[in-house]
Computed example of a mutant assay.
Amino acid sequence: MTVRVVVGGALCRDGRLLAARRSAPPELAGRWELPGGKAEPGETVPEALVRELREELGVETEALERIPGEWPLKPGLVLHVWTARLLSGEPAPLEDHDELRWLAPHELDSVDWLDQDRPFVAEAGRRLACQGAGGAHRGA
């Protein structure tokens, strides 16, 4: 059986991680995730991430590095997460989401993450905390 990759983006800015609240399907609505989607045939996982973030959030990004590990979603479908940098645009919930939040490392537990995203969010939070908050500022 071929395994298809779903890629999630740990999109970071100013020491904060972007969280996206699902609006569909009904069983996931109201829970939070790292935005992303399925890689298409012939597409690399980093290319898929850049395309998915453009489609879902209306932004241009650069995939940086894969966070180790993977999470089986269902037979033939596995989640990989990559860190990503925002190049241009301001993220907006265009598809599948109804709210976005930039969360500092100490705020990551303030939303109800999808189970499969939790280990990746924890690792992304550790990486953010390691970057130091020297230049970070509190925004609205």
Rank of each mutant, 00 (worst) to 15 (best):
H80C: 10
R21W: 05
A92G: 06
E90V: 15
V7L: 08
G125Q: 01
E33W: 14
A122N: 02
L79V: 07
W113I: 01
V50K: 11
E56G: 14
D115P: 13
D117E: 05
L18C: 03
L57Y: 07
V6K: 08
E90M: 13
Q116Y: 13
S110P: 02
A140M: 14
L57G: 08
P75N: 02
D117W: 06
G139F: 13
W102L: 03
R127K: 12
R126W: 05
Q116E: 09
E99H: 11
L11N: 10
L11W: 13
P75F: 04
E40M: 14
R138W: 14
W71G: 00
E47Q: 15
G9Q: 04
L86V: 13
G135N: 11
V3D: 08
L57W: 11
H80W: 15
E107H: 03
L34Y: 08
L86A: 11
L18S: 01
D98M: 01
G37V: 07
M1W: 10
E56T: 15
R21V: 09
G9H: 01
R138K: 10
R54E: 03
R138A: 13
P119L: 04
D117V: 02
A140H: 15
E70F: 14
E90A: 14
W71L: 03
V45A: 11
R126Q: 06
V5C: 05
E33G: 14
P46G: 06
A124Y: 03
A48T: 03
E99F: 11
G42D: 05
D112I: 04
D96L: 13
V81W: 02
G8D: 02
L108T: 02
A124V: 00
P25W: 08
S88D: 12
L73M: 10
R51K: 09
E65V: 15
P25N: 06
E27Y: 10
A63C: 11
A39M: 08
V5L: 06
V5K: 10
L77Q: 07
V45D: 12
R21N: 07
L100Y: 10
R16C: 03
E70Y: 15
I67W: 05
G58L: 02
P35R: 00
V78W: 12
G9P: 13
E95K: 15
L103E: 02
A92Q: 12
W113L: 00
L100R: 09
S88H: 14
F120N: 00
L17P: 04
R54I: 04
G8T: 12
V111G: 03
A136K: 10
T61M: 02
D96K: 15
H97M: 05
P26N: 07
G9C: 06
G76I: 04
R127V: 06
L17E: 07
R4H: 15
L18M: 02
F120S: 00
A92V: 14
P26Q: 01
T44P: 02
P91C: 05
P91L: 04
A39I: 07
G69A: 13
L108W: 00
S88G: 14
L34M: 11
E65F: 13
A10H: 08
Q131R: 13
R126Y: 00
R13C: 01
V6W: 07
G69K: 11
L34T: 02
